[in-house]
Amino acid sequence: MSLARDVMTIAAVSAGAFFFLAGTVGLLRFPDTLTRLHALTKADNLGLGLVVLGLLPQAASLRDGLKLVGIWLLGLLAGATVSQLIARAARHGQLNR
């Protein structure tokens, strides 16, 4: 049982780390603010989600697990709204250029 849990943790956390890697590569390679914003919000949020998923089997209690999910949801909400705010700001910046 514990082995299955650990395998799931390792798999999910590794996948999460991969998406963090992808997000960072995107930040480094993408040409402008708006495209980098995609990299930042999408890849990293998925990465965080997968890390949370991976930690769920290790959580001490159901409550802690739900807390983890809550943190992820809060992170999603933050990412989603902030990406809109920054996108608007960046677009206005471009228009003003």
């Binding site: 402008d32 603010t33 708006l34 700001a89 960046a90 677009r91 206005h92 910046g93 471009q94 003003n96 250029r97």
Partner: peptide, 9 residues
Amino acid sequence: GDDPDQVGG
């Protein structure tokens, strides 16, 4: 005047 450096893009 508007400072073009103000916003990224």
